[in-house]
């Protein structure tokens, strides 16, 4: 296969399984995000791919060739570190040309390549600056240019934007995505920020407890989370304990709720109903939706959206709606809460 394959990779630190039998294949030119909370094993997996950490078990295969035993210096995957790891004693130019110098590229070619890379990351004419003279965003770009200088087969980024403020972060995300599309380079970005993953990735691997919980296109992960972990980590979800009655009916307390038909036959018993806050309705005339009485606990008007916290049969339900859909009701009043069947998904408890 053309691309990067991760085959049954595991890694343990003492009794702790940091990466637990992960398999994934990334076609050439894809942009993949490893998304997960801290401690989920995503950085360890990235470091195993880079060759900075030996895999405990399993194999890393690049374009059909097993590279598991190669060290980081043999793989030469370009990597951008969370701390950026720019060499403080070197200028911008020498940082970017570091890999070229190691390969014995002559000075003139080096210089030309550095200029080319710096204009690629939109830092033309900055070659002679020292690292300490740069702003946060500029350092970011130097780190990216440096990792790309060796024309790596795979480009790895470990939480590269976490130190930037919100506005600059979004700019850099857009720029990186655009750059990646232009260079068609296989890219893996590790992040704990679901917005970052949603906005950049072709595919997302949601990681938890050392395993890939779900892998796929961002929107399908959001719409159809495979389990509680994904439902909760990728965006917000109302998770309600229910009892399965049949293929498309569950019971929440006294009420029976219609849900999207379950694909595989679920055993009867306890399960979790997942519904996104923006899918919960507060209008009466919703066809195909189960209505339950809900007591308004609190209302937060954010301007662009309204958050309503409700109590339905003793369970807290969060509802997010557009201001124009909000009729306005005070905390303490009772409303009808609609659960559209197509948006109600049943997950394992």
């Amino acid at each position: 296969m053309f691309g990067l394959e991760i085959r049954n990779v595991s890694k343990a630190y003492g009794p702790l399984l940091a990466v637990d039998d992960v398999s994934l294949s990334i076609p050439q030119g894809q942009f993949v995000c490893f998304l997960g909370p801290s401690g989920c094993g995503k950085t360890t997996l990235l470091r195993i791919i880079a060759g900075l950490e030996p895999a405990g078990a399993g194999a890393i295969v690049l374009n059909g060739k097993d590279i598991t035993t190669q060290g980081a210096n043999a793989r030469q995957f370009g990597m951008v570190f969370q701390s950026l790891a720019l060499f403080p004693h070197l200028s911008v130019c020498d940082n970017v040309a570091f890999s070229l110098r190691l390969r014995g590229v002559d000075q003139k070619t080096r210089r030309a390549r550095v200029d080319e890379l710096l204009s690629l990351v939109r830092l033309p004419g900055m070659a002679s600056r020292s690292i300490s003279q740069l702003s946060g965003g500029q350092r970011q770009r130097v780190a990216i240019a440096r990792a790309l200088a060796q024309e790596p087969p795979v480009f790895l980024l470990d939480e590269p934007f976490s130190a930037l403020d919100a506005k600059l972060r979004e700019e850099m995300q857009a720029e990186l995505r655009e750059l990646q599309k232009r260079l068609k380079i296989t890219t893996i970005l590790v992040t704990h920020d679901q917005r970052e993953a949603m906005s950049m990735a072709d595919d997302i691997a949601v990681m938890g407890e050392g395993r890939i919980q779900q892998y796929g296109v961002p929107l399908s992960l959001y719409r159809e989370p495979a389990n509680r972990f994904v439902a909760n980590f990728l965006g917000l979800s109302n998770l309600l304990p229910v009892e399965i009655l049949c293929r498309d009916r569950v019971r929440l307390g006294e009420a029976v709720i219609a849900v999207a038909p379950m694909a595989e036959p679920h055993a009867r018993g306890v399960a979790t109903l997942s519904i996104r806050p923006e899918d919960v309705l507060l209008t009466l005339d919703a066809p195909d939706a189960t209505s339950l009485p809900g007591l308004i606990l609190a209302v937060r008007d954010m301007g662009s959206s309204v958050e309503v916290r409700l109590d339905c049969h003793g369970h807290q339900v969060l509802c997010v709606l557009q201001p124009r859909d909000w009729a306005g009701a005070a905390a303490g009043s009772t409303v009808k809460v609609g659960f559209p069947a197509q948006q109600c998904r049943v997950l394992a408890a």
């Binding site: 900075l52 980081a72 210096n73 701390s83 790891a85 060499f87 403080p88 570091f98 990792a147 790895l156």
Partner: peptide
Amino acid sequence: IDRNLIEAARTMGAGETDAFRMVIRPA
């Protein structure tokens, strides 16, 4: 010395002695 500096050098193709010569010694 930020250990990431050594790792960064390695991902760029530096062996043990290269890393020592180009990163550790100047620092």
